[in-house]
Amino acid sequence: MDQFDGKDIMEIMQEDLLRALKKPRKERRWAMAIDLKKCIGCHACTTGCMSENLTPPEIHYRPVKEEEIGEYPNTGMRFLPRPCFHCDSPTCTPVCPVTATYKRDDGLVVIDYKKCIGCRYCIVACPYGARSADSGHYFTGDFHDKTYEVENSGEYGGNFKRKSHWHSPIGNARKCHFCIHRVEKGELTRCTTTCLGNATFFGDINDPKALITKLISKPNVFRYKEELGTKPMVYYIT
């Protein structure tokens, strides 16, 4: 399905987004839905996110897990992309000793790159492995100052250049932030716009008219490890 009620879903989501941005922030609730039927396991979202957020080696905000189901010849596959779930009841924020990571009033779970002391407690505490430690690796070794690796990713709308290990986000915890730097400029998240399966949906679930709200109100929706009580804001459609 590329269309919903005869309208292109990208356009619907775009309109939903602009509408949400007109509301005061605390009335918004960003959420994502990923249609597992449409997800074809192309991993475009993974590298799209890497290039959007200039993440260093071994830090992937949105990996895609590949799970085999059943036994040959009755085999099935599930591709499960995993951004940060921006849990409504996150296990990562309560443990942060300095409240560097917290849930904003729009539900977004953010990391204050200037406060984080790099204790990594939140990384240990997230049950989904959604957080990473940026210990300061570069892909391009000695050549890094000549490449994009020390330029500003614009994450959280800030100005962070990974120039040395004294410069955040090196030394910090990092994770998917729902591309808030794009979203608040009126652009959908990068994983949504690059998804080859058109399987990733984004929007404000406080808006009853939003596409995402309609999608997640169906019975064919689940959240990952829901039993943990974390109440993820990422819904999987089956």
Binding site: C42, H43, A44, T46, T47, G48, M50, S51, T193, T194, C195, L196
Partner: peptide
């Protein structure tokens, strides 16, 4: 859209 490689 770009595929997994194109984004790299």
């Amino acid at each position: 859209r770009l595929c997994g490689r194109g984004n790299a």
